[in-house]
């Protein structure tokens, strides 16, 4: 069973909730697909059993000694990545999309494309099973491909170690990385917060989950920050027939737990939030099981 936890908006507590789920379930594959800002390894300090280089996008580089300043590359680049400054062609690494057209049309073969290989994919063991996470090199494009790699590695590890449950910590936003993180999972957990922004973003990600016909459950985190918006979200779930899994009150212990590098379940084994999260997790798991059977 694969469960993806996503939020649309950042900072809703998605990673803390994913970490809590892992410590409730106790024997899981944890796939950190928030490759732009993977953080769960800080909490769980997994062993590095395997490190793989990840080949990301390509960008063009120019050899100015071969360049005859014919301007063909500059005229054809649609990404405004090429400029002519002080009688020299300059290719911006930042703007280049790696389409390779300039390299193909350069009459003197002065341009080449170069692969980026600084990003990494790590896998290892942690206190609740196995963990896979990707770390995108600074400035690298997040196309969703590294997310795919993390997930396929997680699948292999799940089969090899006979682990039935994979938890996926998804990236923020609504773009390709999110789609890669939720494609073909058994259930999606949407973590929101009672703010106008949180509510707005919830509607956007719900649409994505629907596009892929994935069963989704909503959790409102920090609901006591604004109980009015929180009940509006609940009412919306009811109206739109979205499964509502539960709500968690705002409490600084969530932050305290994180600063001690513990999940809330470990930090307050008998606390109210722990109880609530266990209830929510078991409810979601039970319902996913019902749907798949």
């Amino acid at each position: 069973m694969q469960i993806a936890i996503i939020s649309g908006k950042g900072g809703t507590g998605k990673s803390s909730i994913t970490a809590a789920f892992a410590s409730i379930e106790k024997n899981v594959v944890l796939a950190d697909c928030d490759v732009d800002a993977s953080n769960l390894y800080l909490l769980f300090t997994p062993t590095h059993e395997k490190e793989q280089a990840y080949i990301g996008a390509e960008t063009a580089i120019i050899d100015n000694n071969l360049c005859i300043s014919c301007m063909k590359c500059l005229e054809n680049c649609r990404f405004d990545a090429i400029s002519y400054i002080n009688q020299k062609i300059i290719i911006s690494d930042v703007a280049c999309d790696g389409c390779g057209l300039c390299a193909r049309i350069c009459p003197t073969q002065a341009i080449m494309t170069q692969q980026h290989d600084k990003s990494r994919l790590y896998s290892g063991s942690f206190r609740y099973g196995k963990m896979v996470y990707g770390v995108l090199a600074p400035g690298e494009e997040n196309s969703g491909k590294l997310v795919n790699e993390v997930r396929s590695k997680a699948n292999i590890i799940a089969t090899e170690n006979d682990l039935a449950i994979t938890l996926i910590d998804g990236p923020p936003g609504i773009g390709c990385p999110v789609i890669s993180a939720i494609a073909n999972v058994d259930g999606v957990v949407l973590v929101t917060e009672p703010t106008l922004s949180g509510f707005h973003d919830l509607k956007r990600i719900k649409e994505i989950a629907d596009n892929f016909r994935l069963p989704a459950w909503v959790i409102i985190n920090k609901f006591t920050i604004n109980e009015k918006i929180s009940s509006e979200i609940e009412a919306w779930c009811k109206k739109e027939k979205v499964n509502f899994a539960g709500k968690i009150p705002f409490d600084l212990v969530m932050v305290e737990a994180m600063t001690q590098l513990k999940t809330i379940i470990e930090y307050q084994p008998n606390g109210t939030i722990t109880k609530k999260l266990k209830e929510i997790y078991n409810y979601i798991k039970l319902n996913i099981n019902k749907q798949t059977n």
Binding site: G10, S15, D36, A37, N39, L42, L43, V94, A95, L136, P138, G139, E140, E141, N142, P171, P172, G173, V255, M258, T259, L261
Partner: peptide, 27 residues
């Protein structure tokens, strides 16, 4: 935009100065 990939880069690359807002947690 959040993150450190292309959308972030294309935004800050257009700026003269960047203000980073951060929370003092390990994450």
């Amino acid at each position: 935009p959040p993150g450190t990939s292309c959308p972030f880069i294309h935004t800050v690359n257009n700026a003269d100065y960047v203000v980073l807002v951060a929370e003092p947690t390990p994450f």
